[in-house]
Amino acid sequence: MDQLVSPGIGLIFWTTLAFLVLLFLLKKFAWKPILKALKEREERISQALSAAEEAEKRLKEIQLRNESLVAEAAREREAILKAAREASEKMVAEAKEKAAAEAQRLLEQARENIHNERMKALTDLKNQVGMLSLEIAEKIMRLRLQDEALRDQAIRQLLDDIKLN
């Protein structure tokens, strides 16, 4: 079996030739396009992956921004509501104040009117009382003057009074 371990020149020659040609052909027609395609695909995949990652990152950013926007909106709404409440409270208070003042004024006016009316009534009353007094006095006088003696005496007295002036 020493033939087994004695390499034949012919086989070495043909193996070398066949292998070199195969290497050349496969390198040119197979390995180059295949390896190129594989590399391209890998690059494409890694690009797609990084793009997806980027998109995810952007999505997260947008979500974050949305959240902050929502929070801001909520804050703003709160503020607006608060302001509105305050404004309405103020308005209510003002209206109340105004109403109170008006009421006061009306009251005042009424009071004044009452006072005036009373004064007027009092004056009237006074005048009427005066008139009545005068009438009474006239009547009394008439009654007194009907008596001669008494009338003379009164005229004298009146004349005295005027003299004194």
């Binding site: 496969l26 027609f29 197979a30 390995w31 396009p33 295949i34």
Partner: peptide, 14 residues
């Protein structure tokens, strides 16, 4: 065999 096989594969890739 190798040449036909891998040539076909390379063509498929292209």
């Amino acid at each position: 065999l190798l040449f036909l096989l891998f040539r076909a594969a390379a063509k498929a890739y292209q």
